[in-house]
Design a protein around this nucleic acid. Structure first.
Lengths: 131, 131
DNA sequence: GATAAATACGATAAAATTTATCGTATTTAT
DNA sequence: ATAAATACGATAAATTTTATCGTATTTATC
């Protein structure tokens, strides 16, 4: 019921890999895909999304690749997850209230759970996770 | 990526409903299903599972039903989720190590995330959530 | 300028998981 | 005996996740 998706997993693999390299050097999707035996196209999508969100930066063209751009200490796990997966809620009713259940009695309970999960993920940084 | 399943949701609905009733009185699956417009057979399965785990107790036969048995303050949310859904890990590799990724570099990071989620859910009780 | 190697990304297919239903058995008060 | 309730395995439907495909764009090198 709690699950890290492949998208996030591949992103973590890539970040951790890039952390071991010199700051300047570029890493290609192909290199990571080969080394960790991960589908290159899916990995590429995680990389692209991190690039759009300024966590890493992309260089196009031959000899191109990716490198870490942001200070990973400044990014909470909550932000990281939301950049990749969108709003983080254990139940849809946390955001939009298209609740089908008439006279629902668990909205408050579920929000309590959600708030605590979000609070916890806000205290962890990407750096502390991948270092 | 973090999600409370219907099974858990229905269980919470039922618990919260039963909390409002006298200690002695029994509640049928039908009653809850009707009141919250929830599929009775699925709700019944959540109830049965809670019964097997001694959170509630079942009385069979005509005039039967369920009532809360355990002290909800003594059950952490982690235990509750695990009783209903099994081991709680954000990634399978937390428990069994059928990891396909050769030279995986994110096992430690993922375990760090997992440990913190489990720790957090251990501090919340069912009572505090449903009260 | 052509080519090759890289990122970018929408569309769609395949696989896995979750959710729901069905059918039947069992229990027990009336 | 009957009716109302729990119990539960098997299977179908729906949804979500994961993967692939195809094409476009960018840019260093020859």
């Amino acid at each position: 019921m709690l699950k890290i998706t492949r998208k996030v997993e591949y992103a973590l693999i890539a970040l951790k890999h890039m952390q071991t390299k010199e700051d300047e050097s570029l890493t290609t999707a192909k290199e990571i895909a080969y080394q960790y035996n991960v589908p290159q196209q899916l990995l590429a999508k995680s990389l692209q999304q991190m690039s759009k969100n300024h966590i890493i930066e992309a260089t196009k063209g031959i000899n191109g690749g990716y490198r870490i751009k942001a200070n990973l200490n400044g990014i909470s796990l909550k932000d990281f997850f939301e950049k990749l997966e969108g709003p983080l809620g254990v139940m849809d009713c946390y955001f939009d209230s298209e609740c089908q259940i008439s006279g629902c009695n668990v909205k408050a309970p579920i929000e309590r759970i959600n708030d605590n999960i979000r609070k916890m993920l806000s205290t962890m940084t990407l750096e502390e996770v991948t270092q």
